[in-house]
Design a protein around this nucleic acid. Structure first.
Lengths: 206, 206
DNA sequence: CCGATACGCAACGGACTCGTTTCGTAAAGG
DNA sequence: CCTTTACGAAACGAGTCCGTTGCGTATCGG
């Protein structure tokens, strides 16, 4: 939420004078994301670097956001990837679809940056992360949960399934790959292989 | 490796003058780890803060390490947790033992700090991480791999097991919990539940 | 055209960190 | 005792970033 939106709240009146440049606004957000994507931590981000990269005066930033945290929250919020459409026909297919979003995102600097920030800055900026999680992570978590529950009711998945551990197995396995796999893109069939492995388990059949 | 060790290399000669204080050395390492454990990123660490917390002059630090990166590598290296003894009797038991190390570590600020640094600074300080990984992560990875391989040969685990994905499932699931579980310590039986879930899989039996 | 506001730019004082140097003192060997 | 090296403390010049201010210009409504 920008200061602009805040101060105009309620009144439909258009303020006098030159209106704010939407182009500048976008440039600031983009520059912020680019810097984070380049490996910057939130604490290392400098308003001056953002302004410089965005081709914008610092004034223009401070006029919109009163501090770095607000800017970062707004910037990360623009990354909300839309949930992929789920057919609901097969839990396996839907899980693959959900996990494949993670694989695709991990190939983009933008996606990696979100993960990095989410993982490493949670301790340092708890309020920031709380807001971000609620906006961006929670919907996906819900989608996976529903998919798992549906799989249980259809009999495709174990009746005694522990939803928390199942979620952790699926997303955690992908997470492990995105963070520690040898450099380069992940294999295109990774999500499928992971889902099958998680479904089947590693124990030998009796 | 400290400068001291480097310069004395080979010669068994004791140098003249006052010897370096081992107490100061330890205090510096401890202060570094404490600061990281408090949520500091490597880039935010300041030599001055370390010196102050350690009750030591900056000179004493620069005399031993020529830059921050070397100091951090040495500090993290002292955290090498010894591998737990593995019985080799049961793959399940050994896997639980291995994963339980992760659970215990995640309850300590020290353990969390290592994870945070490893996850978030890999992009920014690739050489640092390469060194750290080789020293601290590789041994555990090997132990898990051997445990899995042994499980396959004994018939306890699937013959067609994909070692990479199996490793990712086990450590990734724990990772997911340590980073995103609700605050507080992880349940004591988490490792056991994870191993059983990974072994069994989530699919319904035919 | 006028007042109001936003723009990019440059500069400010203050705070912090860097890596180095200087100081007086402490602890070892010869 | 004397040399050598390490110690903690303090100060250094250089650099970065902070959040703010002033400047001349651009763009809106009236």
């Amino acid at each position: 939420m920008t200061i602009q939106e805040t101060t105009r709240e309620g009144t439909g009146a258009r303020p006098a004078g030159r209106p704010r440049s939407e182009k500048a606004e976008k440039a600031i957000i983009e520059a912020t994301l680019d810097l984070i994507a380049e490996g910057m931590g939130v604490s290392e981000l400098s308003i001056e670097a953002i302004a410089s990269k965005a081709g914008v005066g610092k004034t223009t930033i401070y006029r919109r956001w009163s501090n770095k945290e607000d800017l970062v929250v707004d910037a990360l919020a623009t990354l909300r990837a839309p949930l992929p459409p789920l057919t609901g026909e097969s839990a396996r297919d839907d899980l693959i679809t959900l996990l494949d979003v993670m694989r695709k995102e991990s190939g983009q600097a933008r996606g990696r940056c979100v993960m990095n920030v989410a993982m490493s800055e949670a301790d340092r900026h708890p309020r920031l992360m709380e807001r971000f999680m609620k906006r961006s992570v929670e919907p996906r978590k819900q989608a996976m949960r529903q998919t798992l529950e549906r799989g249980v009711t259809t009999g495709e998945l174990r009746a005694d399934l522990d939803l928390d551990i199942a979620t952790a197995m699926l997303t955690g396995t992908m997470l492990h790959h995105t963070k520690w796999a040898p450099a380069g893109d992940l294999p295109v069939d990774l999500a499928e292989r992971v889902v099958d492995a998680v479904m089947t388990g590693i124990a030998a059949r009796d």
